[in-house]
Design a protein around this nucleic acid. Sequence first.
DNA 1: TATGAATGAGCGTTCATTCAT
DNA 2: AATGAATGAACGCTCATTCAT
Lengths: 198, 198, 198, 198
Amino acid sequence: MAEKISLRKQKKFQARQTILTAAAQQFKLHGFASTSIAGIMQTAGLGVGTFYNYFGSKEEVLLTLAKNLREKITEEISAANEESSVELLERCCVCTAKLIDENRFILPLFISASEHSDKPEQISKSLSPGFRELFEAIILRGQKSGEFRSDVPTNIISEIIHSIYQTTAFSRLEIPFQENIRLKVKILLDGIREKNFL
Amino acid sequence: MAEKISLRKQKKFQARQTILTAAAQQFKLHGFASTSIAGIMQTAGLGVGTFYNYFGSKEEVLLTLAKNLREKITEEISAANEESSVELLERCCVCTAKLIDENRFILPLFISASEHSDKPEQISKSLSPGFRELFEAIILRGQKSGEFRSDVPTNIISEIIHSIYQTTAFSRLEIPFQENIRLKVKILLDGIREKNFL
Amino acid sequence: MAEKISLRKQKKFQARQTILTAAAQQFKLHGFASTSIAGIMQTAGLGVGTFYNYFGSKEEVLLTLAKNLREKITEEISAANEESSVELLERCCVCTAKLIDENRFILPLFISASEHSDKPEQISKSLSPGFRELFEAIILRGQKSGEFRSDVPTNIISEIIHSIYQTTAFSRLEIPFQENIRLKVKILLDGIREKNFL
Amino acid sequence: MAEKISLRKQKKFQARQTILTAAAQQFKLHGFASTSIAGIMQTAGLGVGTFYNYFGSKEEVLLTLAKNLREKITEEISAANEESSVELLERCCVCTAKLIDENRFILPLFISASEHSDKPEQISKSLSPGFRELFEAIILRGQKSGEFRSDVPTNIISEIIHSIYQTTAFSRLEIPFQENIRLKVKILLDGIREKNFL
DNA sequence: TATGAATGAGCGTTCATTCAT
DNA sequence: AATGAATGAACGCTCATTCAT
């Protein structure tokens, strides 16, 4: 009996996963707005109605995808803690860039979604924690230790990082995503490094 | 007779302006994609059909709004030319920030529009000249004169500026837009200034 | 004073004529259904509103054009009266073909218009007299004189002629319109000629 | 399970049929161009959107209706092959008349549709084969065997037949359709029969 | 639980018609 | 009499959502 339920749950989980994968693929291909639920479910090889057994709306799928990515990033980043703030921030940026590069579609998607949705707060509220906050924590640590300049608020610096990822995901330059990010982060680090430190 | 025509033309111009204003407001409120022509015209207090007496599509309205802003920016900026590259870039950024602040809705709008539209190139192609290029020219000048670092490509630096405007327009921080931009530009300038220059 | 009025009338007549010509051209170019009043008036070089000073609707224009053509045909045909019915019918057909060829657009237009209009009777009622009836008169004369077979009703024969013009106007064959009509009329005449007549 | 699917498919087929019938009725009543999809679906007692589950456009419905009729005609006709060309042609005409009489609306409809549509060839191209060609084959056979006159091209004769059906479907005469056709075909046959044959 | 046919509000767009000038 | 900007009903069409099976 327990096994049966477990099997059922597994199956349910599997369908959910199939939908998520299909959605990600379609978002990547056609963009969030231009992806229809019918399209997702066709890609998933499932009936349209099945969608609503797992998600309430397209936005919810996006949210889930974003949350998944966020967790992966947080996880990977939280592994390293002992370096200098400059090194740590750089490592975080590089690592984040790598993960976003592999799932590039997701970040810009939830960003532009937030612009268009009728309930933008809802999405960004539930999305940002653990990501933006992670960077803010590192920057704050650096400012407290004197490594980073303190004449600029922490969240402003964090916002620059945020904007770099956001825009670079859509960059029309020939430079590869991760390299592009690396160069920009270099400038940023030079811009926020306290000159007189050590 | 001439007066009569003039009067009519004046009214026509006014109606066009009303639509543009209404569109800008709606874009700002709901985003480009979520704004319907019916919504614009209702806001404008005009009939739906009237829209098509002035514009061929929603995109055309966006384009017009963006063009207007671009012209204003280019005009204002091209007034100042004789300073050091650092000063010039800063002035440009401040001035652009001021103008965008007054029409803040427009810049981010055309950006996210370009993500969703079927013909993104068309929009951004016709929009960017005179804006992004303007910044690139200044940065290039600074790199050649040795004021700015040259180990990072010009267009990467320009893209950072671009991304700062783009994201700050949607910033949820309490800091006012222009001040926000000023702080970020300060960091950027410190990040790209050649340390050994003079 | 009288002159002034006359001049005005002349002017009015001229505008009417301009609209008719423009309409004919547009009908010919794009078909009746696909021609808009705005399009007609643009071609005419007149304001949209002016249309309603002369005509109540697009259908009315079509009606007028058709009436004009009908009058021309009737006029031209009524010149010849003294021949044998066979010769007369042939001549009528040839002459009609010539006139329709020059204004080919008009016949099919009022035909298809009658299919689609909500008030088909109105159009065809006011259109047919003088055209269809003309042919019927000739056929009837031929039947009475024994030249044409009488085992088929007059209006059936007349309807064949009608249908020949109608369809040939849209023929996709390479054969020129007038020649096409001529061949068909030849068959028709052979089909209705009384074999034992002299 | 198989039954379940079958039941659903059956229902789906039924809905399709309902739409086709409703469309045919509306086409008959108001003409193709003046029939709106909303009107069809209201007649069908179904939602507007449902239409697009079955057909891509109004044209596709027309095409389907026409194809159905064409198949019925071709099928019925191809049964008889061994007679003289005169007899065969007459039989074909009679048989076609009968079938069109039962579905009279369809033939004239696709004809006038082709006048107005932007892509007339597409419709008539896919419609005519098996119908017009059928008649041409019989006529050609008759011309080769010496039964029919050869001084008039085959396709001209075929076009007369075509035009007879087309126009008679809209005849305002009191004579019943099939009788009307019969009379006209009699004239035609007399007009194309080679006098010296036998 | 999975389904997909049915739905209808909403979209962008057209255009005959009106009316103040 | 001439104008053309304003109008809004109607169009074809899309798609998120529902619900009977």
